[in-house]
């Protein structure tokens, strides 16, 4: 089994999957981004026109920047909500801990579209939230302000992506040796000091990973903004989406997809390098 051909064969077998299902599709859309449409044919003559068109189009560029801002907000909300939850789960006793964790990641077993509809039925005019507010007398009539605006995009995305934030934070907390926390207490540090100087720094890689998940997922999400964002639910994902279908401008769509992909990749690399410096 250790002969060179055998090892090469094993490598080829193992590499075939990722090559076929990851590298090839991404490569093909990168190639597509240098093509152009003439009549109804896609002609590949390695042009940069699509990129020039995107960076020269202020409407699209502005949409891209606003989308980045939106994703940054989702990331922040995700971490602010997700970190305390992960920490709370981590502090439970072993038996309840995994049960709680399971409860919080349970939404991952549910279809993403179903979750959007659920958020809609909570935030909508006849929704759960309005029923509570009207029922308790806080509002005199149901309000439209909870849905179909920028705020509802943030809430919905944060809720949908929360399990992706909680899991890596929890895992990094779980990896902190208990004796480090005990040693900190033995040396006279209060709970707050221990958290600031021991727990928080050691859980930072997981927190960055969780935030990264939220950011990248939000960046690629063109359905949530459309479904809960109302007239303001227009993101770069929608611009890309609009180039397919009847528009049949796949090369331009691919070019914008490539910009989005490279940007996400850059964020991952930068965040990854920050996280790796924080390793124990």
């Amino acid at each position: 089994m250790n002969s060179l051909p055998a090892r090469l064969a094993v490598f080829a077998l193992v590499a075939a999957g990722p090559l076929l299902f990851v590298v090839a599709p991404i490569g093909s859309f990168l190639v597509m981004s240098f093509a152009r449409v003439e009549g109804h044919q896609i002609i590949n003559d390695m042009t940069l026109d699509n990129y020039v068109a995107f960076f020269g189009n202020w409407v699209y560029l502005k949409t891209f920047l606003l989308t980045l801002w939106l994703c940054a907000e989702v990331t922040l909300i995700g971490i602010v909500l997700g970190y305390p939850i992960a920490w709370f789960i981590w502090r439970r006793r072993a038996r309840t801990r995994y049960l709680l964790l399971l409860l919080f990641v349970l939404p991952l077993f549910m279809s993403y579209i179903v979750k959007i509809y659920t958020m809609r039925s909570i935030l909508g005019l006849n929704g759960f939230l309005n029923q509570i507010l009207v029922g308790s007398g806080i509002l005199s009539a149901p309000s439209l302000v909870f849905l179909y605006n920028q705020g509802s995009i943030l809430i919905t995305m944060a809720v949908i992506f929360l399990p992706f934030v909680i899991l890596p934070i929890f895992l990094s907390l779980e990896r902190i040796p208990r004796n480090l926390v005990q040693a900190s207490a033995d040396l006279g540090a209060g709970a707050g000091t221990t958290f600031r100087h021991v727990v928080l720094p050691l859980s930072l890689p997981g927190t960055i990973a969780g935030g990264l998940f939220a950011f990248v997922l939000a960046l690629g999400d063109f359905i949530t903004p459309q479904m809960v964002g109302g007239p303001s639910g227009f993101t770069i994902g929608r611009v890309i989406w609009s180039q397919f279908g009847l528009a049949y401008n796949w090369p331009f769509g691919a070019a914008m997809g490539a910009v989005l992909f490279l940007f996400a990749l850059a964020v991952i690399v930068v965040a990854g390098s920050i996280a790796s410096r924080q390793r124990v």
């Binding site: 699209y60 502005k62 227009f234 929608r238 611009v239």
Partner: peptide
């Protein structure tokens, strides 16, 4: 020109 129509619609949406 479909491309033009998509662009106009995107401007409306944005």
């Amino acid at each position: 020109n479909f491309e033009k129509r998509i662009a106009v619609w995107n401007e409306v949406k944005a």
